[in-house]
Write a protein that binds this DNA or RNA. Sequence first.
DNA 1: TCTGAAATTTTACATCA
DNA 2: TGATGTAAAATTTCAGA
Lengths: 172, 172
Amino acid sequence: MSTIALDAFDYAILGLLQRDNQMPQREIATQVHLSAPAVQRRIRRLQDLGVISANVAVLNPSLLGLPLTVLVSVQLLDERPQASLAFRARVQAEPAVQQCYYVTGESDYMLVITAADMHDYQALASRLFAADHNIRRYTSSIAMERIKTGLQLALPSSSSHNETNTREGIQP
Amino acid sequence: MSTIALDAFDYAILGLLQRDNQMPQREIATQVHLSAPAVQRRIRRLQDLGVISANVAVLNPSLLGLPLTVLVSVQLLDERPQASLAFRARVQAEPAVQQCYYVTGESDYMLVITAADMHDYQALASRLFAADHNIRRYTSSIAMERIKTGLQLALPSSSSHNETNTREGIQP
DNA sequence: TCTGAAATTTTACATCA
DNA sequence: TGATGTAAAATTTCAGA
């Protein structure tokens, strides 16, 4: 429950790493006005704290034969958490499901799915939704354009936004 | 327009890199049964082709004081592409907007937004939506739980799924 | 594919606040 | 005590043959 204290150096480093985590520490060091070992120690700490949760290569879906992005909203019959455990497990196990949120409002789940084509998606949808007796209905929207994709977060003192923002990191 | 040909080695390498792109090439080499220089050549090629579009650190929103994820569906008045250029520009410029898709169906845009709290989100929403005269309505859903997040793609011969899938990469 | 050179990451240690 | 910077050691990446 201890509050994580991050300073401007940490935010600056995070801002660079979430754009390109292969930038040499030496270059990061010069950009944030610190020495390379200091940068190294901070990065390790941020990883240990879980602030940096992963280091990954971002792949281009179209070039990998997965040009179709589908957004699906799902409504359940029985909204009690226990009733949708099976559904969640299936979602977790299915690599085509990139993202899944449990949301308030009219629908219960929102999913982002990647597929090769409509035939592929239909097979996936029937496997994922149609077979589930606890699913009242699901609505598929085809993404005609990906205006913005990524997981980049808005950090306090990077990229000239949020100048007056002094919020603190908090507990898990 | 030339078709990109990727073989099982490429997929195996991509499968590893999209989990952890800091794994040494030497270790990748042993895992995919190739020599380290061969792995290096392939990674460079995949980057040049754009199959690997970025190498990034994934940050934990909650630990950075952004525990709120909001999914927003937006409906426009004038659906002609030209009419929403200003909206798109604002979305691109706003770091709180993580993702934005132009979709078919009832709503026109779907956004994934990260915020510190409801107050923050309301300020953002009024700046992003309320001020826009071309927006008919927007519906916000709070993500109570992030079941699955990430951009990991399902690759042909990795992680024991899609055994019978032999699709090919295609043009940009 | 293998070997050596260049670069980077990592450690050790002295210094400052 | 905790964090930083300098310098040296260990890996890793990269370019030859």
